[in-house]
Design a protein around this nucleic acid. Structure first.
Length: 276
DNA sequence: TTATTCGGAAATTAAAAACA
DNA sequence: GTTTTTAATTTCCGAATAAT
């Protein structure tokens, strides 16, 4: 939920003494314009109230994943399905909308990589476009795995997911996106959507501790961005609506790539390895 | 002495759980 | 269905601090 708290009394934590339509006393005495520019957040509890129980389940399942005692989600070794067909009902609209809501509340303030209108357009186009479907699935996986989004039981795509940890749900979505993307080749004509998709993959795999996979996807994303001339300012001129978001995406890729490269150099170079 | 800041208690609100 | 409980945000009191 977007918060725009600009009211001086609220900021100052003082009681707003307004008399009719005139500016309030605090603003008048402080010489401030008396404006109330706030969109209040929804009050009340969010998510399941059985918080402790679901948290315990989640922690236990995640621990199992790390120790490898549960091998049914071993992403590296499990062969991907040979078909590239979409899994039935994996991205119902209620679930996607809840993810989008979370994205704009928790991720967008730090990583504004997608314009709200563009994302809504993508949701509409999801059914007929494989690339967009992959991006939305990747975004949802990214939110769950990387941004720690825990969807409410009521919005989950499948009933059996109520008994899965959030990481497991994220993995299902990530696998779906990666698998479907393998069925079509967008390398010859990368798009902003495909860059985003791969950027989300990279974030997911990094969070999962698959550094090499994350790095490969990050390089893929930067290459695509370069092919799209995202490093040229003229690229943004013809469509200004989401150009700020595209710029942010480009710079995030650029910074992450450099950072990752430096990290690899420090931790994995032959010299670093012999010094251990 | 007066003005301002801000920690946090109290009030308010809304969603989930419990109940009939 | 209604009521209760719980968990979230909002308000703003008043102590601490800064400015004059």
């Amino acid at each position: 939920m977007l918060i725009l708290t600009n009211h001086s009394c609220h900021r100052r934590k003082v009681k707003c003494i307004a008399e009719g339509t005139a500016p309030c006393k605090n603003c008048t005495s402080a010489g401030l314009a008396c404006t109330y520019n706030a969109i209040p957040q929804k009050k009340g509890p969010k998510g399941s109230r059985a918080k402790v129980l679901s948290e315990l389940r989640d922690t236990q399942r995640n621990a199992e994943l790390v120790t490898g005692s549960s091998n049914d989600l071993d992403f590296d070794r499990r062969p991907l399905s040979t078909t590239f067909a979409r899994s039935e009902g994996l991205l119902p609209s209620a679930f996607v909308e809840s993810c989008i809501d979370y994205f704009f509340t928790h991720v967008y303030p730090l990583e504004p990589v997608l314009h709200p209108q563009r994302l809504q357009e993508a949701v509409v186009a999801m059914d007929r476009s494989t690339g967009v479907y992959c991006m939305i699935a990747a975004l949802c996986a990214y939110l769950i795995i990387r941004a720690k989004y825990k969807p409410q039981v009521s919005v989950l795509p499948r009933r059996e997911m109520a008994h899965m940890s959030s990481i497991e749900i994220g993995l299902v979505l990530l696998e779906e996106s990666v698998r479907i993307r393998q069925g079509y080749d967008d390398r010859e004509s990368p798009t902003h959507t495909s860059v985003l998709t791969v950027w989300f993959y990279s974030g997911c795999f990094r969070e999962l501790g698959r550094e090499n996979t994350a790095w490969t996807y990050l390089r893929d994303a930067t290459t695509q961005a370069q092919l799209l001339y995202m490093h040229h300012e003229e690229t943004y001129e013809h469509d200004v609506l989401d150009s700020p978001q595209k710029r942010v995406l480009y710079w995030l890729l650029f910074i992450s790539e450099r950072y990752h490269r430096a990290t690899l150099e420090i931790t994995r170079s032959p010299k670093a390895l012999t010094n251990r």
